[in-house]
Amino acid sequence: MSSIEHAADLPAWAALAVAFFLVVGAGLTLIGTIGFVRLPTFYERIHAPTLGTSWGTGGVVMASMIFFTVLSTRPVVHEILIGIFVTVTTPVTLMLLARATLHRDRAEGNPDVPGEAPAQVLVEDGAATKAD
């Protein structure tokens, strides 16, 4: 059990707050990843890891901010960069990934996914009748 010498002059309330945010963040990340392994279909699975990117990242970033701010007695907020970055990029990547998956499922004719948007369905129907 390694002690934390560099945090010896951290006040008790700050140590407790850092511990709380660390446990909440890491625990929620673990719960999200367990869901990622256990859920049955991809469209359900894609929701689970966002627990790690929202509260997981938020908790660990908050713990780090409190720790370094209290320890160096000046505001240390550069961790918020990671929080902002993850918050902005996660929806972008997951929307792209979900659309790519939907595209692949439609291209394979998977019956479990909804078809194309109505306008495109009309065009395809017209093409089909012409071909018939």
């Binding site: 934390i4 140590a15 407790l16 850092v18 625990g27």
Partner: peptide, 12 residues
């Protein structure tokens, strides 16, 4: 409280 913090880090 430092023991709690130390264990919280291990747990995390």
């Amino acid at each position: 409280s430092h023991t709690i913090l130390s264990w919280a880090m291990v747990f995390a």
